[in-house]
Design a protein around this nucleic acid. Structure first.
Lengths: 221, 221
DNA sequence: TATTTTATATACTGGTGGGTAGCCATGCAA
DNA sequence: TTGCATGGCTACCCACCAGTATATAAAATA
């Protein structure tokens, strides 16, 4: 009988604090494999266009195998989406712990986050496209995370405006635009295409800088 | 028997050049109603999440009714997508026929296109999200149109760079970013929300201007 | 008014795919 | 060498939905 997929809560075994939880690690690894392959197919063929049989086939396993690691299809999508936004959020926060003038931090943030988005392009693209296939509760939670990102970005912009580094009329709008600009790359970027990831990152950085900086104060070029 | 949906080619009746083609107009009107309702549901629940029965119900008709105006579900999606991008393209071209310096035309374009995008938000959003549910050929055709938009925008930017009005390193990238910024509004804008459409348009215009203009040359504020 | 044509509905089919019940192979413990 | 746990597989079910064959009402035509 397929065990209930309570693998989510890792280290379910007794608190044997000495040895590693090998079982758990293997489980997590398998979950990861499923997630990656599913994401790949969702990206290429859409969520509804992808059958779990197809995912299983690519992994040379069967559908019940998947069902012993995920409760259902939607849960896979949830993990993809969550990963997508969580990565961005943590990266953002990490950059914010550094200090330096707003522009420096903004640039660093754009660098880190855009890099991340390109590295995890499929996750991000799927997450953006398939939001409505999430269960309503989950969708709400994810949207909240997304919003948190924009809000924090807005704060940073406010800071810059206050100290005169930025020239922005509506920081809320600018925040949406900037995060949009970064997200957008996941939609059009093609690995192995005309532009390398690092070129995209650099150009995005420049665009963002242009968007916020007070003309006279713009530094290097 | 359900007639083959050859309603697409309008004015199928004999070339009676005197009277109006009332039949055809009614047909077109019905197609339009179906399209709007379908788009609305696709927007709210996704393409695969929407059954044609549901569309029919909302219109107080039945599924075969729809099938006598559209060959299949994908054709409806095609028309939605095509409408989405076609609107933008024609608006762009229309603006380009006017003359004036690049910045003026760019601003006018952003105004017109963003307005259009907000007015047709559902079409645009569906078109962006559901691209992969189109038949491969159709998808290619649509992508081509999208690309045409970016290319023409790039040309305008090149012009501006040549005459010194714009300060852009990579006009191709800037074009993608700008069209991305405008498209993005269709994803987050909420009618009746905090910002009115015209505010969004104005702010988008400012963002775009910031992105391209050479600092010293920026005019009004 | 009889007859054909058009427009729409009722009622079905066939394929598909998410999800599951229950079986089997392997390994480990006693 | 039996018994139990683990982990996966075979085989199935059933809801759902795109698409269709056929009936019927309304309108156009004669």
């Amino acid at each position: 009988m397929a065990r209930p997929a309570n693998v989510t809560t890792k280290a379910k075994t007794k608190p044997d604090m000495t040895g590693r939880d090998v079982k758990g690690e293997i489980s997590a690894y398998k979950r990861r494999l499923i997630l990656e392959e599913a994401c790949h197919l969702f990206y290429a063929q859409g969520y509804e266009g992808t059958t779990l049989d197809a995912v299983a086939e690519r992994l040379n396993v069967t559908k019940p195998f998947i069902y012993s690691y995920y409760r259902n299809k939607a849960e896979i999508l949830r993990e993809i989406s969550e990963r997508g936004i969580r990565l961005c959020l943590t990266a953002f926060d990490e950059v914010m712990t550094t200090d330096g003038p707003p522009l420096t931090r903004l640039k660093a943030m754009v660098d880190r986050v855009t890099t991340l988005i390109l590295e995890n392009q499929e996750y991000i693209a799927v997450y953006q496209r398939e939001e409505m296939n999430l269960e309503p509760d989950t969708a709400r939670a994810i949207r909240k995370l997304r919003k948190a990102f924009d809000t924090r970005l807005e704060k940073l912009l406010d800071e810059g405006v206050t100290c005169g580094a930025f020239d922005i009329e509506d920081t809320g709008f600018a925040a949406i635009s900037i995060s949009g600009l970064m997200s957008w790359t996941a939609n059009w970027f093609q690995p192995g295409g005309r532009r390398s990831p690092s070129e995209v990152v650099v150009q995005t950085q420049k665009m963002v800088t242009h968007m916020v900086v007070t003309p006279k104060q713009e530094t290097s070029r």
